[in-house]
Design a protein around this nucleic acid. Structure first.
Length: 483
RNA sequence: GUCCCCAUCGUCUAGCCCGGUCUAGGACACUGCCCUUUCACGGCGGCGACAGGGGUUCGAAUCCCCUUGGGGACGCCA
């Protein structure tokens, strides 16, 4: 079997679309699975719309996902001449011919055809021109587009995912392979590149099958062997049409910014249209590589379900080790304004404990900042319902007073000691531990929910705990007097 | 409009190629109970699908046809 060489060929539009990312992933997986090469080709022939920055975004996105490529990227903008040579070859062999038709005229004919419910096809006006007239036009230097001559018949290919697909040539056109300025058109360039790069398998979105027929026709005209094709189902947005910016995030880096882990994103998109064949879902990249195969790619399009991505992200957060997690949440902590980069660096151990008490209730990285806000706030607001439930009850201030006394005399402010102290106090006062726990939680965090109380207290430290408890006691007394 | 492709729970999917083991399995979401100081995590349950109609067959989610529904492509864009 020949070497597996696959590629991803994004056009630099300023971001790497999630659909392109998945195509890249499937190509990469295929290459890694079969010990082949994963290549990168930048389709930047549209020079006005592409720039260095946009290309860098593609590199960054691919790197972020962990999809490393094996050879120097190929830039289409640098291969214009190569394409032209092939167009000329086609022209010389008579497989393609010049067309001097004006775009306006073409458009008019198209409209007319549509009106009479005909499939709009080029009528070969220029192909049928008398030889001497063609010669005159060429000699005059009049600009012309180049069309591929399509004869009768049909084109069929065996897609590795979809199966056998056929297109009658009468549905096709003598389509243009080079513009009147001489530059080759997309389908032409792709064929030349894929052949030149010795691509063995073209794995791409299902929206390309119509291009595939055209490309195969070009391969034939050029007398070269086409690669194998595998068209993967599309990723649809909530509205069931091709995913776009309106569906939240279009670029993969957006997901990073929103607080998704790359492992989760990769795992999730791998499962869109592919499955290992058993019940595994949360899988390491090595496991995915090992079980990956084109045969197991489904034929039906898939809707991008953000809910499930969030769940999976939570799974990855929980499985993530604390040190790495601190590193990951750092930008979000800083962005929230809670702490500085420096602060985190100097209190790394504390941060490790911090993430450990929040990791099982966060699905997205920014939630570490949101949920733990009270740790850093100078003054906390008490949740209204919580005040009703836990503060405005007989004897709460007195209870808190006793608790404050106990805490004030504590030497080791540890989870075990704290728990022992609280339960001990509850017993002597003949109340349920919960009667102390709930008001304390509210006093310390302003919330009725959150991490285990004693973990919170230990992390918060004695000064803050005491201070907040006292403030809560005052708060209750004051609101009681007002009432 | 023309052509191509697709069709299992709301969503992602297993099963389909090689019909019986499918009273259709898993996951997300929703939901009940348990664990528990709250929330969450976790555990155990529940809800929930073979688009419809014809064939073929002793037997069809699985094979064939039609209908319906969905998506995509129809540029001198990529």
């Amino acid at each position: 079997m020949n070497e597996v060489r696959v590629r991803i060929a994004p056009s630099p539009s300023g971001f790497l679309h999630i659909g392109t990312a998945r195509s890249a992933l499937f190509n990469w997986l295929y290459a890694r699975r079969h010990g082949g090469k994963f290549l990168l080709r930048i389709e930047d022939t549209d020079t006005e719309r592409s720039s260095k920055e946009m290309i860098d975004v593609i590199f960054e996105s691919l790197k972020w996902l962990g999809l490393d490529w094996d050879e120097e990227p190929v830039y289409q903008s640098q291969r214009i001449d190569l394409y032209r040579e092939h167009v000329d070859r086609l022209l010389e062999s008579g497989r393609a011919y010049p067309c001097w038709c004006k775009p306006e005229v073409l458009k008019a004919k198209q409209q007319e055809a549509m009106k009479s419910k005909q499939n709009p096809r080029y009528d070969r006006t220029c192909y049928n021109l008398p030889e001497d007239e063609k010669k005159k036009l060429i000699d005059s230097g009049e600009k012309y587009a180049t069309r591929l001559f399509i004869d009768d018949g049909a084109t069929t290919f065996d897609d590795l995912v979809v199966g056998t697909v056929t297109k009658e040539h009468k549905e096709l056109d003598d389509f243009i392979i080079a513009r009147s300025d001489g530059r080759a058109v997309y389908n032409m360039a792709v064929v030349v590149d894929d052949h030149d790069m010795r691509i063995s398998h073209v794995i791409r979105g299902n929206d390309h099958v119509s291009n595939t027929f055209k490309q195969i026709l070009i391969y034939k005209a050029l007398d070269i062997e086409p690669p194998k094709f595998a068209h993967i189902p599309l990723i649809l947005g909530k509205d069931r049409s091709k995913m776009s910016k309106r569906d939240g995030a279009a670029g993969v880096t957006d997901y990073g910014r929103m607080g998704y882990l790359k492992e989760a994103v990769v795992n999730f998109i791998a499962l869109l249209g592919w499955s290992p064949g058993d019940d595994r879902e949360v899988m390491t990249i090595d496991e995915i590589i090992e079980s990956f195969s084109l045969e197991r790619i489904s034929t039906a399009n898939a809707i991008f379900d953000t809910e499930k991505l969030r769940w999976m992200n939570g799974e990855y957060i929980r499985a993530c080790d604390n040190h790495k997690l601190v590193d990951l949440i750092r930008p979000f902590m800083v962005e929230s304004g809670l702490v500085t980069q420096l602060w985190i660096n100097s209190r790394w151990d504390w941060m490790m404990r911090y993430v450990s008490i929040f990791k099982e209730r966060c699905q997205l990285l920014p939630e570490f900042a949101e949920q733990g806000r009270f740790f850093f706030a100078d003054r906390i607001e008490f949740d209204h319902k919580g005040v009703e439930k836990h503060f405005n009850k007989e004897g709460v201030p007195a209870l808190l007073g006793k608790w404050i006394d106990v805490l004030g005399g504590m030497e080791d402010f540890t989870v075990e000691k704290l728990e022992g102290a609280l339960r001990g106090l509850a017993e002597t006062l003949e109340v349920k531990p919960a009667a102390l726990i709930h008001p304390t939680r509210l006093a310390l965090s302003g919330e009725t929910k959150g991490p285990p109380l004693f973990d919170m207290m230990e992390l918060l430290g004695p000064e803050k705990c005491l201070e907040r408890l006292k403030r809560a006691r005052e708060f209750i007394k004051n609101s009681g007097e007002r009432a």
